[in-house]
Structures are given as structure tokens and as C-alpha cells.
Design a binder for these strands. Structure first.
Length: 859
RNA sequence: GGGCGUUUAGCUCAGCUGGGAGAGCGCUACCCUUACAAGGUAGAUGUCGGCGGUUCGAUCCCGUCAACGCCCACCA
């Protein structure tokens, strides 16, 4: 799994594994994500690239801290504050040591061929250094700053969270219409709000400056009900005259819009909430209540005062914390921010100018939409588990500075009485540097050792669309800022795995499919093949275990095919084969193998795993097993040692190539079978060279003939089935064709018709000869096939069948004939298309004639 | 409110720059045929969401309508 020097003039190929959380448990999403990556890595490795797949793990600030807090409270009845920061962190590390490996062990069951020596935990020393370096650089550039700003507050976690961590969900609420009195006037302002309890934090009422209903009141004072505070009536264009009552209460401390209005009008910001989301002293009348309780109480008080005009039902979007599920409270608070304006610009440009490409391309839009209007990223979290913010403040002189290393004294006054900021950084701040820190950045020695210059920028990032902003965009921004280069060339966004009905899997719905269960039931290769064959440029994969079963059967088919061939391989002499000596069936299968090689390679290179896997499946199942093996049985069981040896050589060659083609997708079975096929000086399959398309193996004439052979054989079988002829019974068949070349080929293939369709004897004549009676027939565009009527068949049914065939042929004929009669078609269509259509018309006509003749003979 | 996507066989989906509609699963019939019944052989099934346009020709390009889904947005 370690990078080996590149071969065949190839370069390096690097993938970073999206690091699973320490608290994580393996799910289908991982299985898909890792299957795709492992397919790519094994494919590129075999192609000769110096290939590195870097695994890692994320410390997952909030999730981990919450888990450990819960455990301690359950077992000891203590909170983290009872233990203190230092002791609590010790406990988290202990938990991590004990349980952190769980998901890693699960991942290994998927067959990931990543280099575990590169394993990086986001709280390791190097990532810590990276975080500190990046932070300090940004701090010194002024891009990281501390500010009082309105942020999303999670009252349950009691921490700020970023905009991206807020999900808006539809909630059934009410529109409360409230009367605000106007000072020195009898006028009443009707204000509509969904959150009456925030009126305690109102510091203005706003109307649109162009709204003549309220024009005369602008600049006057309104009186906030219950607390009777006087606030100014301001004019602001943000107010929508059509919406609500056209009159807006302004709560700059607890609403993002109002905050902006407040800034424009220099309004006072009033905080009415405690950290746990309850109302504080500033809302005397509802103090200590939760927001929900306070809302009820406020409405009651308003009713008593006669200032509640009406209540209307209203559905609206309310922000919920992705982490805790709690309703998020906008709150003004002192936090650390990263100004991402320029970084976002750069990361957008990098995609626009093609330095980084999305597959499928459509995801660009999503990526852009997140970054066109970036707001400052709130990076501080009021948690303990994570990278503590490397900013220090001196108690003596008040100096604040950022430092990569823990300082000994204050740089301005030499005092030792300084304190580090107690907040930690958003987990994504360290994940955003993952492409750098996994390769040793910023430690020069580590960078050298890990080959930073060789492996950075990485090649492909494989992930789901849900973290395009969280992770992809942040890596683009931060890594570009740090190095001037985008962290990857390609981003492949794969689908989301859903249940068979297209419903997202969730614990509560009980529709979760556990990859480990699937593996133990059907095998890892079957799961991998299913996921790969389901992955292209699609957005959803509806995973039905029956589908996995189907591909398990395919893996089994491969095994059985090998089991059949294996004993014959002792005839092989490992000399390979001379192209000139090849039997036409051998040329055919080699040409087909050559084709599928090309198709698979091209498909994998553009992340069309569906196309690639389908191509292998069809080749192995239909071409190789159904036809080549069947066609070979005669030779394999014959006494002709030369032919047997050559066929064994071809078999061995094909099977080895098939194992190589399959290896990226089904590494287990292919490596196992390879063990029986390889020569002594050949190494493991994983390090073999991937098959390459060769022009000289493109035997198109043999492919053309074989297609005819298959067509005729199937037709004979069809007739047999129609006449209820016993499978073992041998029959006489007569062919009529005017194509001399074809006739020769059929004659040459007579032995194979016998083996595959139980044809006892067959005469090949041209169409001028009288057709046999007491027979049933089938027509192709070039050949008529007659089988004597042996069993009992329903003559009416047979006539109906012929009529059906005739109708089909007529329909097809009419279609092409219509084209040919259209002078504009002849004039405008390319010559080759016209020729093609002419050929088809002729073929259909022949077929029609054949069937008509036969029908006439029957009547 | 803004944006994006999807609509093709019973189900899940593929159809690249326009030129005779495909796969897997499922279904039907017959078969323990000497690798494979987790199999074999044969077979049935589509107004390519509706309407209009461009074109010699449209599943594919343009317009429009409809249904479904997703994302973003400051909770009046």
C-alpha cells in the first residue's frame, strides 16, 4: 500500500481520505466513499503511478466532547466544570485511546489500500503546528480578528456555531400583530412578529422610507409594550412594504437583519438572553423563562394590555443546530472571525480557470453559490476539546498577541501573568489544513520525510456533496492561502446512499443497512462491485440488498469459471501465443478483451465507475463465459495437444487480464485467483501493470463473424424452443444465404453449431433453392434458418409469430424507406449515414421477403 | 423568495458532440446439459412527463407547462 517509484513515465497520484470522526461508526456512505477511492488508487497504482492514499481521523470537537461529557455525567454524576479543563481533557484523550480505533478497524474490512504510516489524527503534533502557524499568520495579517458580532448561538452546547452548521427547518408558528404606541401621538403602529418575546430587546421600530402610511412618524418615538421603553422610529429600505404590516420591530441583539439595520442607524444592542437561552434581567417581566415560555407569557401580558391585535398561523423557516438539534439563537457575542473574502475569491477563480475541476461538473454551481458572498467565518467555539486558540493576553499590560509556541513571557512587558484565550477552534479549521498537515506541513523535516513536494497538490478528492462547503471550499481557501496552490486537481462528488425506496437511511426510521452485515452475508467484493457499478455522475444510490446479491452471484460466476478452467491450465506452456497461429475464436476473444480494456480504462479515468464495471461484467459474463468457454470445450477435451496447449495459453492470458481489470473493484477474489495463475517471478496482483489497449489485437473481421455466429446460434435455439425440441435431441438445420463469405464461415463453424445448438447436420444453400416443407423458419437480414418440424407445434401460434416478426420488419423498413424517399435527407445527411440507411433498408427488405415466402408456403 | 436538479421497460438507472430505444434486477416458458440452479436457454414489456419550435431527421438542441426532489436565503 506504500507508494512505489513511478513506472512507464507516470507521475504521482495522491488521494486524501476524508477523515472519519473518532466518534464515528462505519456506514454505507463510508463504504461508497472508500470503495471509489480504493478503486482509483488500485487502478492508478497498477497503471504505474507513484500512488499514495492518506488515511486520517478527525477529532470532531463537538461530537466527541458531548459524548465524553455524557459518559462522565452518567457514570460519576459530574459535569466537566466539576473536573476542570485539564482533567476533562485527560478523560477525552483516554476515551479516544480506548474507542478511537473502532471505526479504523471497521474501515480495514473494506479492503482499503491506504498507507497507514501516513495516518494523521487532526490533534497530532503536526496538525497542531499547522493550525497554529496558519492562525498566527492570519492574525498577523489582520484576517483573523476578534469582534462583537451577531452569531448563531447553540443554547444546548453553549457555544457559537458557524453559519454552515445551521439547518433551516420549516416550523409551524404564529404571526403576532402587536400595537406599539407612538409618543406624543394617538397613532398606533401595528407590528408583526413571529417572536414577540424579543420585544424586550427592541431598540427601534423600522418602516420603509417610501411608505407614505408611516412617513409622518419617522423620527418620532415608539413605546415598546410591557417594558415601556422609548425607541426611535427609523426609515430603512430593508423593510418590505408588502410583508407583514410594513412595520418592523428592530431587535439588533437577536436577529441578523435587525443587527444590520442597527448598524446602519447606530442603534443600541441589547442582549436579553443568558447563555442557556433563557431570558435575562433585561427582560424583567419574563426573566428566567425559556424562549418558548417567555413567548407565551409575553403574549398573555400583551393581551392584558390590549395591545395584541391578532394572531395568525404562519409557517416559517427556523434555524436549528446541526449538532444538537436545538433552535439556534442569534446573539451578539465576542468571537474570533476569519475574513474569507479574498480566499473565497481565489478558490472560485481556481475552479473557473480550470486549475481544479469538479466531476460531475454540475457541482461547481453549488460550490460557487457558497462562496460568492462570504460572510466572516466564526471560528471560535466555547468548547474544551479542540485546538485552543493561540492568542495570549497579558494581565499586566493588556497586550494581546498570537504565538505558534507557548510563550514564556509577555513580549512587551516581560510579565508572566498572561493567559491563553480559552476558546478552541472550529473543527473545520484543522480539517481545512488536512492536505497540508498530512504531508508534514509546516514542519520542514516532516515535509521532506513525507514527500510534500512530490505529493502536494494531491490528485483527486472523493467526497459527498454535503461537505462541499464545510470541507472542500475550506481546504481550497486555506491551502491556497498557505501555499498558493489548490490542494487537488479533481474533486469527484459521489452519490448519497439511500435505502431501496430512495429514503435517506436513519436510525429512527430503522432503514439503515450496515456495510458489515452486507459484507458478512455477501462478501466485500460483492458490496464493492455493487457500489462501484452504481457510481457515475448520479446523485442518489438506492441500495437494495438484492442488488448486492446479484453482484455476489457475478463474483461467484467468476470463481466458477476459474474453477472450470483451472484443470486445463496444466496444458499451458507459458510461451504465450503467436498472433499468426491464433484460432479465429481466440482472435475474437482477444479483440473483445482489448475493447473492454479500453472502455474500462477510459471510464475509470473520468470517474464513470458504472460504465467501467458494466463493461467488465458484460464481457466476463456474456462474451467470456457464455461463448468463449462454451466454444472451447471441444478443443479442451480433444486429443490435439497443440490446440489444447494454445487454447490453455489463451485462457490463461485472458484470465490473468480479467483479474487485472477486476482487481481495483474486487481485490479479494482477483488476488486469490491470481495466486493460482501467476508465474514464480510474478509478484502480487496489486502490483501488476494494468492492461493496455493494443491496436494490433483489434481483429474486427473475427468480431464481425462472431456476431453472425451468435445471431444464428441463438436463432436455432429459439426455433428449438418454439418446437419444444428436447435439449439433448440433435436436429437437422438448413441455412439459406446469398452471402458467400458468410456461407463459408458457417461451413467452417459447423462443428460449433453442433456443440452449441445440437445441430446434427446442416446444409448451406443460396436463396434460389427451394425451401423445405414441414419446417419452421426464422429470418435474419442475411440468412434464413429452417428446422424440420419434429415435435408438435401449434401451427396458428407459429403463423402468428411469423406475422409478428413480419410486422416488426415492415415497421423498421418503412421507417428507413421514408427517409430514403425524402430528397432532403439524401441531400443533407452525410453520405455515410445515407449508405448505412440504404444497407439497413436492404436487410429489412430481405427479411420481409423471407418471412412472406414462408407464410405463403403455409397457407 | 432565489437557484439547481430529476422525469426513459414493473423497479433502479445508463444513453457521449442529434441518424435504427439499452443494462441490471424482476417477470414468463422450458431445462439438474459433463464450471456454475447463487445456474442455463429462450421470451415479453417503452405515446423516452405534456405541448410547441429548430432540423432532412429530436430521448438528445431551444421555448413553455406540469409533477417530484434538493440546496441556498435574515425566524417581520
Amino acid at each position: 500500500f506504500k507508494p512505489a517509484p513511478a513506472k512507464n513515465g507516470k507521475g504521482t497520484y495522491t488521494i486524501l481520505m476524508p477523515p472519519p470522526n473518532v466518534t464515528g461508526k462505519l456506514h454505507m456512505g463510508h463504504a461508497l466513499d472508500h470503495t471509489v477511492q480504493d478503486v482509483l488508487v488500485r487502478f492508478k497504482r497498477m497503471q504505474g503511478f507513484e500512488t499514495l492514499w492518506v488515511p486520517g481521523q478527525d477529532h470532531a470537537g463537538i461530537a466527541t466532547q458531548a459524548k465524553v461529557e455524557e459518559k462522565i455525567f452518567k457514570e460519576e454524576g459530574k459535569t466537566k466544570h466539576d473536573l476542570g479543563r485539564e482533567e476533562f481533557l485527560k478523560r477525552v484523550w483516554a476515551w479516544k485511546e480506548e474507542h478511537g480505533d473502532h471505526i479504523i478497524e471497521q474501515i480495514k474490512k473494506l479492503g482499503d489500500s491506504c498507507d497507514w504510516d501516513y495516518f494523521t489524527f487532526t490533534m497530532d503534533e503536526i496538525p497542531h503546528k499547522a493550525v497554529n502557524k496558519f492562525f498566527v499568520d492570519m492574525y498577523n495579517e489582520g484576517l483573523i480578528y476578534q469582534d462583537n458580532y451577531i452569531i448563531n448561538w447553540d443554547p444546548k452546547l453553549q457555544s457559537a456555531i458557524s453559519d454552515a452548521e445551521v439547518d433551516h427547518e420549516e416550523v409551524q408558528g404564529n404571526f403576532y400583530h402587536i400595537h406599539y404606541k407612538v409618543k406624543d401621538s394617538n397613532a398606533l403602529l401595528e407590528v408583526a412578529t413571529t417572536r414577540p418575546e424579543t420585544l424586550f430587546g427592541d431598540t427601534a421600530v423600522a418602516v420603509n422610507p417610501n411608505d407614505d402610511r408611516f412617513e409622518h412618524l419617522i423620527g418620532k418615538k415608539a413605546i415598546v409594550p410591557i417594558c415601556n421603553r422609548e425607541v426611535t422610529i427609523v426609515a430603512d429600505t430593508h423593510v418590505d412594504m408588502e410583508k407583514g404590516t410594513g412595520c418592523l420591530k428592530v431587535t439588533p441583539g437577536h436577529d441578523f437583519n435587525d443587527y444590520e439595520i442597527g448598524k446602519r442607524h447606530e442603534l443600541e444592542i441589547m442582549n436579553i438572553l443568558n447563555k442557556d437561552g433563557t431570558l435575562n434581567d433585561n427582560a424583567e417581566a419574563v426573566k428566567g423563562l425559556t424562549a418558548k415560555e417567555a413567548r407565551k407569557k409575553t403574549v398573555e401580558l400583551l393581551e392584558e394590555l390590549g395591545q395584541l391585535v391578532k394572531v395568525e398561523a404562519h409557517t416559517h423557516q427556523v434555524g436549528h443546530s446541526q449538532r444538537s438539534g436545538e433552535i439556534v439563537e442569534p446573539m451578539v457575542s465576542k468571537q474570533w472571525f476569519l475574513n474569507t473574502k479574498e480566499m473565497a475569491d481565489t478558490s472560485v477563480k481556481e475552479v473557473e480557470n480550470g486549475n481544479m475541476t469538479f466531476f460531475p461538473k454540475g457541482w461547481e454551481n453549488t460550490y460557487f453559490s457558497y462562496q460568492k458572498n462570504p460572510r466572516p467565518w466564526c471560528i471560535s467555539r466555547q468548547l474544551w476539546w479542540g485546538h485552543q486558540i493561540p492568542v495570549y493576553e497579558c494581565a499586566e499590560c493588556g497586550h494581546q498577541w498570537a504565538s505558534e509556541e507557548t510563550p514564556h513571557v509577555c513580549p512587551t512587558c516581560d510579565s508572566t501573568a498572561f493567559k491563553q484565550d480559552s476558546d478552541v477552534l472550529d473543527t473545520w479549521f484543522s480539517s481545512g489544513l488536512f492536505p497540508l498537515n498530512t504531508l508534514g506541513w509546516p514542519d520542514e523535516e516532516a515535509m521532506k520525510e513525507k514527500g510534500f513536494d512530490k505529493f502536494y497538490p494531491t490528485s483527486t478528492l472523493v467526497t459527498g456533496f454535503d461537505i462541499i462547503f464545510f470541507w472542500v471550499a475550506r481546504m481550497m481557501m486555506m491551502c491556497n492561502k498557505a501555499t498558493g496552490k489548490s490542494p487537488f486537481d479533481h474533486v469527484y462528488i459521489h452519490a448519497i446512499v439511500r435505502d431501496k425506496d430512495g429514503v435517506k437511511m436513519s436510525k429512527s426510521l430503522g432503514n439503515v443497512i450496515d456495510p458489515l452485515d452486507i459484507i458478512s452475508k455477501y462478501g466485500c467484493d460483492a458490496l464493492r462491485f455493487t457500489l462501484a457499478v452504481s457510481s457515475g455522475y448520479n446523485r442518489n444510490i438506492n441500495l437494495d440488498p438484492e442488488k448486492v446479491e446479484g453482484y455476489r452471484n457475478f463474483v461467484n460466476k467468476v470463481w466458477n469459471a476459474f474453477r472450470f478452467i483451472y484443470p486445463y491450465l496444466e496444458n499451458a506452456n507459458d510461451k504465450g501465443f503467436e498472433v499468426d497461429d491464433l484460432h479465429h475464436h481466440e482472435r475474437w476473444i482477444l479483440a473483445e478483451l482489448n475493447d473492454v480494456t479500453k472502455k474500462v480504462t477510459e471510464s475509470f479515468e473520468e470517474y464513470r465507475f458504472d460504465d467501467g464495471c458494466n463493461a467488465i461484467y458484460a464481457f466476463v459474463y456474456d462474451k467470456f463465459c457464455s461463448w468463449f468457454i462454451e466454444l472451447s470445450k471441444g478443443i479442451l477435451n480433444s486429443e490435439n495437444q497443440n490446440l489444447k496447449a494454445q487454447r490453455a495459453n489463451v485462457f490463461k492470458h485472458c484470465f490473468k487480464e480479467i483479474m487485472k481489470l477486476l482487481h481495483p473493484v474486487t481485490p479479494f477474489i482477483s488476488e486469490e485467483i491470481w495466486g493460482y495463475l501467476k508465474t514464480e517471478d510474478e509478484d502480487l496482483l496489486i502490483s501488476q501493470e494494468y492492461p493496455v489497449y493494443k491496436e494490433e489485437l483489434n481483429f474486427s473481421e473475427d468480431v464481425y463473424n462472431m456476431e453472425r455466429f451468435i445471431e444464428i446460434t441463438s436463432s436455432i435455439r429459439n426455433l428449438r424452443s418454439q418446437a419444444n425440441i428436447k435439449p439433448k435431441e440433435e436436429i437437422e438445420v438448413r441455412f439459406f444465404t446469398d452471402d458467400e463469405e458468410l456461407a463459408k464461415y458457417f461451413f467452417k463453424s459447423r462443428g460449433y453449431f453442433k456443440e452449441l445448438a445440437r445441430v446434427k447436420s446442416g446444409k448451406i444453400k443460396d436463396k434460389s433453392i427451394e425451401r423445405p416443407t414441414k419446417s419452421i423458419m426464422r429470418a435474419t437480414p442475411h440468412t434464413e434458418i429452417f428446422v424440420p418440424l419434429e415435435g408438435v407445434i401449434d401451427i396458428h401460434e407459429y403463423i402468428e409469430k411469423l406475422n409478428n416478426d413480419l410486422k416488426k420488419a415492415e415497421k423498421e423498413f418503412e421507417k428507413v424507406e421514408k427517409k430514403l424517399k425524402n430528397p432532403k435527407f439524401i441531400e443533407n445527411a452525410p453520405d455515410e449515414v445515407v449508405e448505412e440507411v440504404k444497407g439497413k433498408a436492404q436487410g429489412f427488405e430481405e427479411k420481409m421477403k423471407s418471412i412472406q415466402n414462408s407464410l405463403e408456403g403455409l397457407s
